[in-house]
Simulated assay, not measured.
Amino acid sequence: MNRFKVRAKISGFLILLQHGMKGRRTIISEMNERGRKKEAFVFVIDFDTTNVKLFRPDETDKIWWQANNRSNFAQPPTDEKEIEWETQPVSFGHYKKGYDLVQHHIHNGDTYLLNYTQPTAVQTNLSLEEIFHHSGARYKVLLKENFVCFSPEIFVQIDAGKISSYPMKGTMDASLPNAKERILNDSKELAEHNTIVDLIRNDLSLVAENVTVEKFRYLERLKTNQRDLWQVSSKISGDLPENYTEQIGDIIFKMLPAGSICGAPKKKTVEIIKAAENYERGFYTGIFGYFDGQNLDSCVLIRYIEKQQDKLVYKSGGGITFLSNAESEYEELVKKVYIPVFKKD
């Protein structure tokens, strides 16, 4: 039996529960109504779009967040204690079982790009709150007693009716010789990036007109607690209708799940992801966003640590194509398990 999600307003925020299209339509309508009234809100949506939370921007007892230069928390003084950081990724054998299934579907023509992820157990002397405050990132989210995320990846931004997306595909250790040239000239990375740019362009075309690729494959350097990384991104933009604020919920949900963290074609690829990964992503690879009543800033929930009872689990992965190598992809998954720690001058 298909049980509908139900809506519950508690202290100004809304939670979706259970499964069903009726619940999803309710949350979309709620977001549209807030957009019509030009009311600010923040939101968190899980990968499956079955768990959605809306908050007032100032609900600091439930969520801390930062979206570029906007935030709802005060940065406390951070101590200089030595950070303990140990990781226990899944074995290569375990990883390869899912990887081989993905490759089977790629060679069968069911998908041509799939974002394959796995969990890594983490031991550290930092709490989720301390990780949040120690991390330097464009976007930071702490859902109390649930997860912390320090994401470098924009989902979409809306500024005065213009919507833009910045898909990130391609990561390389910046300390390697000629790392910038190597990542830009890597045929596998180029094919993966081309696919994602095409997918995001199609996604934006569902909600906007005059969609164009403004910048293609530019580099950003990310600092972490273990190493610096080069990350490759592109910028794609389009024009929204005049009354877009009244459709803000529809606009967001039409583009989910985010193309960069599932693959193409979306529907079939998500089915393969669930079979290959064999674990629950939860809020990982979902999205977070801040709507100020007119403009929107949002991110993809990657670089993500989840609290599971008394344990911490870091979830990471990467895009798989027919050109992929299992050992290299496993190494990338492991290298993405880091904290982008603030370093004082």
Rank of each mutant, 00 (worst) to 15 (best):
I302Y: 04
N115D: 06
P89N: 07
A264N: 10
K81T: 14
K235R: 12
Q88D: 15
I154R: 06
F291W: 04
L142P: 00
D173H: 08
E209H: 08
K38C: 08
K81S: 13
E209M: 00
E59N: 11
N72C: 07
H104N: 12
F253R: 06
L301R: 00
G20S: 05
I158Q: 01
F92H: 13
K96H: 10
N225W: 06
T87F: 00
A160S: 14
F253N: 06
L16Y: 09
L240C: 06
V211S: 05
K307Q: 14
T78P: 15
F92L: 15
D345M: 10
L333G: 07
T49Y: 07
K344I: 07
D79K: 07
F155V: 08
D297C: 10
K274V: 02
T285I: 01
M1N: 10
H104I: 00
I287K: 01
L206W: 11
V337Q: 03
E242I: 11
G98P: 05
S260V: 00
E39S: 10
K254P: 02
V6I: 11
Q75G: 09
Q247V: 07
E331Q: 13
T26Y: 15
Q18M: 09
D239F: 00
N185S: 15
Q123H: 13
R281H: 10
G98T: 02
G20K: 02
Y95C: 06
K267E: 12
D239E: 14
F150E: 09
P76H: 01
A258R: 04
